[in-house]
Amino acid sequence: MKKIIILIMTSVLLMSCSISTSSINEPVINIFDKHEDLAVDYYLKDNIILGEDITVEKYNEAALIYDTGSIVKLPFKDSISISRLKGLKGIYLYNDFFSITDAYYDAESSLENNERVILVLLDGFSLNQYKHALSKGYISFLQNYYKNEAVSVYTPVTNAGYAAIITGKTPDINGIHDRSNREMKVDSIFQYALENDKKSVILEGDIKILNTEIEPMLHIDLNKDGDTDDEMFESTLTALKEDYDLIFVHFHGIDDRGHSFGPYSDEAMNYISKIDSWIEQLSEIWEGKIILTADHGMHETLEGGSHGECQQADMVVPYFVIN
């Protein structure tokens, strides 16, 4: 059974520190692993020593997640000194670290080996939702291709997660921290495709999210059903018949229903089932790899669902690979 006991240094040591707690921007953090939040709204008083007095299922490392979007990995038994607490938003405990940025490198490696790739962004699809859908029988196809959990980036919102997926870089490097940013500071997978004579396409909803090296193909809700995902799915089927090396498609419907009805609602689960069937259809036609992950997860609220916090539900998502 998991327990957490965080060792806090004495007030004598606190007085000897040159940086006072009043200078820490965000003194309250969450500590979580891939399964759950282990400590919520934990107040940072002084140095945290991981491993020495934390009696949990054995972990090898901890990732410090900062408000800049940077992620700093430490051996589990290292001390997190007070100088490292400024801007800290959360601590992720793990044995093996997987990130949504892996999607870039997996896609790049496939293209390098002349393997065609579909990269699917399942907006707002948390690991918790995947596990719930799996337990209720809503995800019969993708369950066969689940690879691992993946950690999103801070802030866990679409612009930042999207940029991390297509650049392989965290927000402190790619420059996309929140919904207000569109201009990336580094090249994306689409630039890699251009430089290597690979033909690519971006299939997006009705709004351009980021400024990328190629223009996205935007979609309108032609059948007036409240979504553009079905129009994007039809465009994807058309794209499969063309000579694209890289197809990027951004499905929004899971996120939309999570916000409106809650991440575990019947509406969200039924839509996950629809996406699952679409991916199965694509896999039957496509001769290449399909990589799927999410930009962020989602937690429950009284109104439905939300995201943007450094907590397990928002930060940990599923990662799938269909070869």
Rank of each mutant, 00 (worst) to 15 (best):
M9L: 14
S20W: 09
I31R: 00
F32T: 02
D33E: 11
H35Y: 12
D46T: 12
D53Y: 12
E61N: 14
P75C: 06
K77I: 09
S83N: 13
L85C: 03
K86E: 07
G87Q: 03
Y94G: 04
N95I: 08
N95W: 10
D96A: 10
S110I: 04
N113Q: 06
N113Y: 00
I118H: 02
L127R: 06
K131Y: 14
K136P: 05
Y145L: 04
E149T: 08
P156F: 10
V157Y: 12
T167S: 15
P171G: 05
N174M: 10
G175V: 05
I176C: 05
H177Y: 14
D178K: 13
M184L: 15
D187A: 11
F190P: 01
L194M: 08
E195V: 01
E195L: 05
K199H: 03
D230P: 04
M232V: 02
T236D: 00
L240K: 04
K241D: 12
D245A: 08
L246R: 07
I247E: 00
F248I: 08
F248K: 03
F248M: 10
V249G: 06
H250I: 13
G258W: 04
H259V: 15
S260H: 13
S260R: 15
Y264H: 13
I272M: 12
S277V: 03
E280V: 03
E280Q: 11
L282D: 05
M298Q: 07
M298R: 01
H299T: 01
E303Q: 09
S306E: 13
H307Y: 08
Q311E: 15
Y319R: 02
F320S: 02
